[in-house]
Design a protein around this nucleic acid. Structure first.
Lengths: 338, 338
DNA sequence: CAAACTTTATTAAACGTTTTCGCCGTTAGT
DNA sequence: ACTAACGGCGAAAACGTTTAATAAAGTTTG
């Protein structure tokens, strides 16, 4: 590979001059800059990023922690979409992204260790099963600039999807359609789940509807099969709900399957709502009413917060950025006359 | 950060000895190895991967080229699944993966340049809109060890999903269900598309069925909206097909939507088949009959081929690895009595 | 016209590793 | 007893950069 040295000897100048010319320092004349840049191009010079990183301690590399339950990882539509938004924004700013695994070249290490070993400029925790996990907190509390998504940790800027608003929108929409018996199958324990759960309860109370325990069940995110069973259970209650809010669109599909099998039609016999607003939800039949999370903006915001944090343009205790979404009306919720 | 130097002075040995001890060279005694490793651990030493890479020219980093049409990128269920398989296998072997973009730290560069700048040990082209694209061929023809997925290029090991078999399976299945009027909406021009198209035609001919031009339409992958329109067109023909093979499951959902709107029921009035076997396809109603591609194995094979290529365990002109899939029977294809 | 800057370039150290070579002392071979 | 081999270690160079210190010129300024 052609290095700065080759350019130097080709131009008859010192390597320092070449370096400065390429980095556009002021103490090298325009004419030599020109010459150096031209021969650099002619020789096909490409900077060696590790050599540069070694000196400057800047890698232009962002670590992505993606520890999703059940290893569906990158395959999970919502997190993949968020990651995509993150990736685009990061790349637009000249940063590469690398997944943070638990080893390098054969030696096992923690997430944090991986980050310092690879010298990432910062890291984003897109999702983690368990933010209380020792390895995750190690990273969160480390000196590696880190931002979190849909989770808040002291001294880490966070980007949050507005789950309070999302759940409120869904409940209020169901209410506006005449529903009073609104069930909610919530996902695995997490910050997101508890925010949604609280919003569900609060909204119902504000609407003067009692929160019923039998209308609340714990399910799993992104698991149509599990959703299928729980939805069936709900609808077979003596006093079944008229509308069910599912943990996400994937699960909602499971619910639709369940009702299909039971001969209940949606939305005539039972109404269903999802969460996320994945593309396919608009093409289901019935078209799913769901709360669309703005995954692109969530990811992009995380990237720009992280980059700002790296550049120290914002402090570590910056308040969380909240990203709104919107209810996407489909035809999976029926109008109830009362 | 604590470096090899710190360990050296803490132990009273030279940095060379420390390096050798940590890398388990034979010319340092067991006892000093022990001592060095212990103090390394005690001091919290972590190797600096760029310094190491600078010397060894090995980064344990794999580049991923992911230039999907329409920028859905990582969001595309099939490619995301393949990438996931790749990632898991790569990480199991101690490699990190980094996306190959077109810039680093602000300076724009080609894919190839990105690879040499970052010094990736190898690259995988998961998908590219256009393998004939100048930037893609530059990478393919470069000295960067590269493997391709679902595309063949001289001197690049390839991993191929068995699309010939897949399409044949679908057509034969439709035939076995009594269908003779089998339409096929194919995706954008690519190797995959042409293999499937050829297999479609060959299989029909072998079954003594004429290939009809009006049963062949070019659509788009992963685009339910476009699929919706085309499926509608097909079914409104004077002599409509009884079974339609869609470019993929996403598109198949679009077709289902179209028929729903037209009041045609699947599979009674018209049969539909997808391709890919995404999770949701089993939860649609009707459950989609589709050809499941083994995305995990495709990705994993690509990773192991790439790593083998890097280690020079296989030559660059290794024959392509073919990954089979299987037909997943749903209920979207009806039985036609003749 | 000397002193004081400016401009442009170079020298050399440094970043954290790996690795070649050589040194020294011990053991084995003849 | 002399050499050969070997085990264990260190010195130093190298990888490709960046950058502080410095120097040599040229240019202003009082």
């Amino acid at each position: 590979m052609v290095s700065i040295k080759d350019i130097a000897s080709a131009c008859g100048v010192s390597i320092a001059t070449v370096s400065k010319a390429l980095n556009d320092h002021k103490d090298v004349s325009e004419s030599t800059k020109m010459m150096i840049r031209e021969t650099a191009k002619k020789l096909g010079y490409l900077p060696n990023s590790q050599a540069r990183a070694l000196k400057t301690n800047r890698t232009y590399n962002l670590g992505v922690l993606f520890a999703e339950r059940a290893q569906s990882g990158i395959t999970h539509s919502h997190f993949a979409a968020v990651l995509n938004g993150f990736k685009n924004e990061a790349e637009a700013n000249g940063y590469d992204i690398t997944f943070i695994s638990r080893q390098i070249g054969g030696t096992r290490m923690t997430y944090y260790e991986h980050c310092v070993c690879r010298n990432v400029d910062g890291a984003v925790i897109v999702c983690a099963d368990d933010f209380e996990d020792a390895e995750v907190t190690e990273l969160l509390e480390s000196s590696v600039p880190t931002v979190t998504i849909d989770y808040e940790s002291p001294n880490c800027p966070a980007v949050l999807s507005n789950n309070e608003f999302g759940m409120r929108s869904l409940v209020e929409y169901a209410y506006s359609m005449g529903h009073r018996k609104i069930a909610y199958i919530y996902g695995e324990t997490s910050r997101v789940t508890s925010v949604r759960l609280k919003s569900y309860k609060d909204t119902l109370e504000r609407l003067n509807i009692n929160v019923r325990d039998d209308y609340l069940m714990q399910g799993r995110y992104h698991d149509p099969a599990s959703a299928e069973k729980l939805a069936e259970k709900l609808v077979l209650l003596d006093d079944p709900p008229t509308c069910i809010i599912m943990p996400d669109d994937f699960s909602a599909v499971g619910a639709l399957t369940a009702f299909e099998k039971l001969g209940k039609s949606v939305p005539e016999d039972i109404s269903v709502m999802g969460y996320d607003g994945i593309i396919l939800s608009s093409f289901l039949s019935p078209k799913l009413t769901t709360f669309r999370q703005d995954t692109d903006r969530i990811g992009a915001a995380a990237a720009s917060q992280l980059i700002a944090l790296i550049k120290k343009e914002i402090p570590a205790d910056t308040p969380a950025v909240m990203i709104d979404g919107y209810l996407r009306e489909g035809s999976s919720v029926g109008k109830l006359r009362r």
